[in-house]
């Protein structure tokens, strides 16, 4: 009787060791073959023809241009969505207005829609024969098959990230801090800079990291509107595909390793932010 009691006090419900180790083992195995092995393979393949070839292929003019374009797209997309995301989150958490719920649903469209569809929609609207594009063409402005089009679809695809990070936090924090600041005499800008921004700082950085990661890696939408002009409208992900189709496997993997490297860096930074946040919450 007493030994039975002891056993039941040590094991919680569902703590069967067999189940536990079976599940943990299976998870580790799947993680390895689905995530870790492919990642290692990228770097292995990139260096298959030696380090010299690796760096030479990265320094090729078209590759350098693709890297530059990708960075340009990210550099333009991130600030736009940073501002837009803060505005969106502020609107839906601080104001009551008709259509607020609808807006919160609409902002997830870029997540729900396939990026290829997004690309096609932009082509339809802004292409030379499109509704807006035809008029722009008359003004001698070309958006599609040029870098502005790539930025536009990337902005579309990445627009929910910042707002999605901010909304739950701002809802949870409520508006009392802001009310307190206004009662104490703060102007709108003082309120934002000294109270709101510090409160949402970490979530904002987190949202920016995710936006950046997606902006760098986006393929589907970009491939529709880019026109794949080598050395002109090729971003890094498109460039990887072109090189691969040209049977330059090692070069393709070298470019891909760059993308993977950026991704790893992003994850590292994200882990750091999470660690910071947890530490901050622990002191709260």
């Amino acid at each position: 009787m007493s030994s039975k009691k002891q056993a039941s006090s040590q094991l919680r419900v569902g703590d069967n060791p067999l189940v536990k180790w079976l599940l943990v083992g299976l998870t580790l195995f799947l993680t390895a073959i689905l995530l870790v092995v492919p990642l290692i393979a990228i770097f292995q393949q990139a260096f298959v023809e030696g380090a010299a070839h690796y760096f030479n292929s990265l320094l090729e003019a078209d590759t350098l241009h693709a890297i530059g374009l990708t960075l340009l797209v990210a550099a333009l997309t991130v600030p736009v969505n940073l501002v837009f995301g803060v505005m969106l989150a502020w609107s839906v958490t601080r104001f009551e207005f008709p259509g607020r719920k609808l807006l919160m649903t609409l902002m997830d469209i870029p997540f729900a829609v396939s990026p290829v569809v997004a690309g096609l929609l932009y082509l339809l609207l802004y292409g030379n024969n499109g509704w807006i594009g035809a008029w722009l063409y008359e003004q001698d402005i070309q958006l599609m098959f040029a870098w502005p089009g790539i930025v536009m679809v990337t902005v579309f695809v990445t627009c929910p990230f910042v707002a999605r990070e901010l909304i739950p936090l701002m809802q949870q924090q409520g508006r009392e801090d802001e009310e307190a600041a206004v009662i104490l005499g703060a102007s709108g800008w003082q309120l934002f800079r000294r109270v709101t921004l510090p409160n949402i700082k970490w979530a904002l950085i987190y949202g920016v990291i995710l936006t950046n990661a997606r902006a760098v890696g986006e393929f589907g939408a970009v491939s529709v509107v880019s026109g794949n002009i080598r050395g002109e409208t090729n971003t890094l992900p498109l460039h990887v595909q072109l090189q691969y189709e040209d049977y330059q496997a090692a070069a393709a993997f070298a470019s891909a390793s760059l993308l993977a490297f950026i991704a790893l860096l992003t994850l590292l930074f994200k882990a750091f932010i999470e660690w910071r946040q947890e530490r901050q919450e622990a002191t709260l």
Binding site: D177, V182, I183, L184, G185, P198, L284
Partner: peptide
């Protein structure tokens, strides 16, 4: 902003990223 009343909130609404002294100074700083 212009009514200049003091208000104490139910959950205090202290600014969590500021020290106690900075919290108290806020109304003067702005």
């Amino acid at each position: 902003r212009d009514r200049r009343v003091g208000f104490v909130f139910q959950n205090y609404a202290l600014f969590r990223h500021m020290t106690v002294a900075d919290n108290v100074a806020f109304g003067l700083d702005v």
